[in-house]
Design a protein around this nucleic acid. Structure first.
Lengths: 240, 240
DNA sequence: TAGTGGTCTAGACCACTAC
DNA sequence: TAGTGGTCTAGACCACTAT
């Protein structure tokens, strides 16, 4: 490899390997050479190779697996999520013909946080349901969502968790309402370690945090949710 | 420090230092101890300390400066950008009382890319202006935007670049039109090295890419732009 | 058992800053 | 000149996978 001034070795190596993936020299869903092999190829220390791999991992090109090797990611077009007042996860995915499912990771009842009180216009003493939902696209975990309902809005919610597969389906069939999005706040960041673990990504892969307030069709707030979405699997379209 | 099982040293150290910043033990806009000092404090190798610092840097807590030390970032509330069909950068910032400015980094005329043709409904042979604009908030570079206009829409645009400070101000005063946003696509990722350099951030700090199509109030497309925004300085609000 | 990636130690040299 | 962060080398030990 030609060493250029003012260039950093590990970034050059990452660039070089990415180019080989792009060009087809390394085949998709195959593995790149092992760290030791790359050390020999580029005549550098393993530390440098590992930095290069970290960069590629964060960019979403490869996924290292302990004991096996470093797999090249299937190049997936990120899911395009159309955001409007009517948008819900399931329908968005179905519209794009993308296989998807949801899993209820955890649920609890309790008191709302200050943040939740403000958004849902709640008294701090009102009981709420708090759910943790993991959403899969193509059998890959794409997002974790924490979602909060006042207990008075969805009394006995826990009775319907058996065989959970779609939150909005559940609301519609048991409570006869369809929440409507009133606002969303986007924010990109790095994941908390806990979320990274659930989403099965390294802690340096960016995520998008989407904070949403949902209302009754009438106008009063019913649901406040915070979704953390793998950024490499997701883009969000807003039309005006 | 208490060493816990199944925890990773550098993440624990990052956690521990962040806690000291939070608690006020390390003062804002001061420096954290030097790498060597931290090595002594935590009884670990410099490599581990550097990983911890990398994590904190990516999370936006500190900024290392060669030869000087590792500065604790002023905790800034991210700028809240309200996205609507009428939104423009300057007005958004002014509404929040945030000091801001824009700088024209580069401009050129040339032929549109395939992408640009599609969005602007252009013939591949039509000439376009392509501008590269750096936007500052509080004297910190917040975003780089590449923006494209068909030449026929803004003939002689280069004559007005002298003393450039606001794109939309320029359009309004010299061409008597106000572009209106028709759609935007959000996507979080890691920056290209070139953008990271311009924005003065490490290449592992996430950015938000906002791709926008702007129309004439009448309806026909006039401007296609792609902004890369520091995620730690920015959140985006959409109301329905 | 051999090979892979994950973590950590030890130490070198550089560029930049402060004095 | 001394101290700081930036990059790289060399090598250890671990956990996991394949055989």
């Amino acid at each position: 490899m030609k060493v250029q001034d003012e260039a950093i070795l590990h970034l050059q190596i990452a660039e070089s390997i990415i180019e080989k993936i792009r060009s087809g020299e390394y085949l998709e869903s195959d593995k790149i050479p092992s760290e030791n092999e790359l050390c020999r190829q580029f005549h550098v220390n393993r530390h440098v190779v590992r930095q290069a791999i970290a960069r590629m991992t964060n960019l979403g090109w490869v996924t290292p697996v302990q004991g096996k090797g470093c797999y090249i990611n299937r190049i997936m077009k990120p899911v395009q999520y159309v955001l409007s007042s009517q948008t819900r996860f399931s329908e968005n995915m179905s519209n794009q013909g993308v296989p998807h499912k949801s899993k209820l990771l955890h649920w609890e009842t309790g008191l709302p946080s200050e943040e939740e009180c403000i958004h849902l216009e709640l008294d701090p003493s009102e009981t709420i349901y708090r759910l943790e939902i993991l959403r899969y696209v193509d059998n890959t975990p794409m997002s974790v969502t924490t979602t909060v309902f006042p207990k008075t809005e969805v009394p006995g919610l826990e009775n319907y968790f058996e065989g959970f597969h779609s939150l909005y389906g559940l609301l519609e069939s048991h409570y006869q309402f369809r929440p409507v999005r009133s606002k969303s706040i986007f924010h990109a960041s790095l994941p908390y370690l806990k979320d990274a673990k659930v989403l099965n990504i390294p802690e340096s892969v960016p995520i998008v945090q989407i904070e949403s307030l949902m209302n009754h069709p009438g106008g009063s707030p019913v649901e406040y949710s915070v979704a953390r979405v793998r950024s490499d699997m997701h883009r969000c379209l807003i039309e005006f």
